[in-house]
Design a protein around this nucleic acid. Structure first.
Lengths: 235, 235
DNA sequence: CGCGACATTTTGTATAGTCATAAAACGTCT
DNA sequence: AGACGTTTTATGACTATACAAAATGTCGCG
């Protein structure tokens, strides 16, 4: 029943040989044809296993030279960044959303640069608060480029946050995330209901379309309580 | 030019249909056979395109039901966490390493829990500083489980940091990362040469083997200057 | 000796055909 | 009508084969 697919068995087997140290970084491993023979399967099956392992960064493949065990590079760490409401509801807490500010405004220097526009160009500025069990959980400070997303001007964002709306209505192709730490300014402290000087964890996101920059947003979290964590067993 | 592989063209084409809104989340898309016909290729080629798009989370596939466009879930964000020395040297700065402390010590409560051992069990405790151009860049506070990695007791870690050594000598299978923000305590402030109360970005990592927990480590970075960022164009 | 043309090797991709598997739809029997 | 087994259908996986592309090594010519 839970018969594993052959290509999976091969992947696991090869991974094992690396994890046990039988094959070490830099080692050349047998060619596809030879492996196919030892595993008693077609080359295509071995190929798939090797291809996927290479995609995961475990192996490095070059034509003619063959396949070798990759030197461990930096870990690439897969963080899950779910929609806030999902994240909060997953913990069993009650989610609440409040729009604090909405208006077309000239872009200050920093967001302008982030959106690749000139300082002073008009853009939609949104500030929202997300609550978990009536306590501030995340402060969202967002700019949306009306040139790329003209529909945003007709949205009030009173009821639903910009994130779900954007995710649903504006497909994007590229994103960049930046994570940093800061301390709460007076304004941020008041908004998040924490003492001035407390740590704040900041996630900044910029997204692009084929048409250009879509939005740039900074999420502020109370740093003492908030953590970003990878799911266990990410391989 | 047909320099791109057909399965890639198909992937891009399908992605486009989604990004342009032709196909929207929840929509069913044509079956493999039908797509194969419209693209003028074999079913296997379409299959590969669909499989990879499903792996990327763009599509959802169920037998008999067919393939449909996935509702955008949380983004999973791939952070690169390179070895410190690579990270520093990549910026052109000079890298320097200093071992501050090394000793077999009874585990305090927190690291003990992280390593899944009893408080008071002996483990190897290391504290190191990594410099970029003579300025403190990262403070590393690490515990290594000697039960899983007995060789660690013979390593001085005077010259090379524990990270490269572990990466090279102790294969691991699972890792968990946690990112959080804090403010500099007196001790951390002195070590990192920043004012007390400044923000600190903390990355914590736990890694496992088939034999059990390997190591747990906390990296402290000056938060005003340090950023974690995703590589651009991660799709 | 230098260097370009060519052959070889190994991975990459495509194809058709087969079998497996899951789930929905259908039909039959009670 | 409802329960249960059968058929249908779409995806999932594997095999075998063929050819393409890339990198390397080699041969031969000037």
């Amino acid at each position: 029943m839970t018969e594993v697919a052959p290509y999976q068995r091969i992947k696991d087997d090869l991974r094992d040989r690396i994890h046990t140290g039988l094959w070490r970084p830099g080692d050349s491993i047998p060619g596809e044809m030879q492996l196919a023979e030892t595993f008693g399967c077609a080359r295509a099956t071995v190929h798939r296993a090797l291809r996927e392992l290479a995609e995961e960064g475990v192996l490095e493949r070059r034509r003619k030279t063959g396949t070798r065990v990759a030197y461990p590079k930096g870990r690439s760490l897969a963080l899950d960044i779910p929609l806030v409401q999902d994240e909060i509801r997953a913990t069993g807490a009650e989610y609440k959303y409040r729009l604090m500010h909405r208006g077309m405004e000239p872009l200050p220097a920093l967001p302008a640069m982030a959106l690749d526009r000139a300082t002073g160009d008009e853009a939609l500025h949104l500030q929202c608060l997300h609550f978990a069990d009536r306590r501030p959980y995340q402060f969202e400070d967002r700019w949306i480029d009306p040139a790329t997303v003209p529909e945003c001007k007709n949205e009030s964002f009173e009821e639903t946050g910009p994130n779900p709306w954007l995710v649903r209505n504006v497909p994007w192709t590229d994103a960049e995330h930046t994570i940093s730490a800061d301390i709460a300014s007076e304004k941020i402290a008041e908004i998040l209901d924490i003492p001035v000087g407390d740590p704040v964890l900041i996630v900044e996101r910029r997204t692009w379309n084929d048409k250009g920059p879509v939005t740039m947003v900074r999420f502020h979290h109370p740093g003492r309580t908030h953590r970003l964590r990878t799911p266990f067993g990410a391989r």
